[in-house]
């Protein structure tokens, strides 16, 4: 298979498969959760503002309580660094926007080159730091399983493969013909691996975070307890 065929495969059938698995996987998990039995709570609620409680928990849990700051600040800041970094890299880079535009027709302005470079650095440093903590903290070593390490590798792979495609000046327009079809194909395949893996492993926290926080927020609001 020559590199252009590989690229065609990565851009064509494999992309369709990856997006299908991504969407169906998430839908299946959501359906599975909603389908689980849920007994009505007959206790007299202290407050009926459960929706506000759920939304409130989603927002307030974005930051820790002051009393935990000393012990969780580093981890929280680091998580923000690589999450925001990933978002900037994925949604703010010129070729990525062009790629999405070709698929969906949607487009938006790119971020400046310096911001993109900072985001890339934040992702690499952040992910490496997170792994180091995972490997050295006795608590995290005990908790960690295959999913944690696999998810780490699958998340950093598109970053590494993407670096190999970075041959142009950061602000230059997206070329009609890719200069290096093979590295680009590999980059795309690594992103597709991420899409396929996401619904199955811990990366599903991307959508579960809202449901989990919301469930607790609603339950606590009902009791008049704060989170």
């Amino acid at each position: 298979m020559d590199s252009l065929t590989l690229l065609a495969f990565a851009r064509g059938p494999m992309l369709v498969i990856a997006i299908a698995v991504f969407v169906l996987g998430i839908l299946w998990r959501l359906f599975h959760l909603l389908w689980r039995p849920s007994k009505p709570d007959l206790s007299e609620p202290r407050s009926t503002a459960v929706v506000r409680g759920a939304l409130g928990a989603i927002v307030t849990r974005m930051w820790h309580h002051k009393t935990f700051r000393e012990r969780t600040l580093a981890g929280t800041l680091n998580a923000y660094a690589y999450h925001i970094g990933l978002a900037i890299v994925f949604f703010g880079f010129v070729p990525h926007i062009a790629f999405i535009e070709r698929l969906t027709g949607l487009s938006w302005p790119a971020v400046p080159g310096w911001l993109f470079a900072t985001a890339v650095a934040a992702v690499f440093v952040g992910l490496v730091y997170a792994l180091m903590v995972r490997l050295t903290s006795p608590v995290l070593r005990l908790l960690s399983d295959f999913d944690d390490y696999a998810s780490w590798v699958i998340t950093i792979l598109p970053m590494i493969t993407g670096m190999a495609v970075l041959s142009l000046a950061l602000d230059s327009p997206y070329p009609a013909q890719p200069l290096y079809p093979a590295p680009l194909a590999i980059h795309l395949l690594s992103v597709e691996l991420l899409l396929i893996w996401l619904p199955f492993g811990k990366l599903s926290h991307a959508f579960l975070v809202f449901i989990s926080r919301g469930a607790t927020g609603a339950a606590f609001a009902r009791k008049g307890a704060s989170l």
């Binding site: 903290s137 608590v139 399983d145």
Partner: peptide, 30 residues
Amino acid sequence: GRDAATWLESCIHCGNCAEACHFYLTTRDP
């Protein structure tokens, strides 16, 4: 049920809960 299932599926293994638990904080046993 629904809530419990959601919680069981959501853990990201960050270990922060250890830092809130009096039994962990006073023994440092993971």
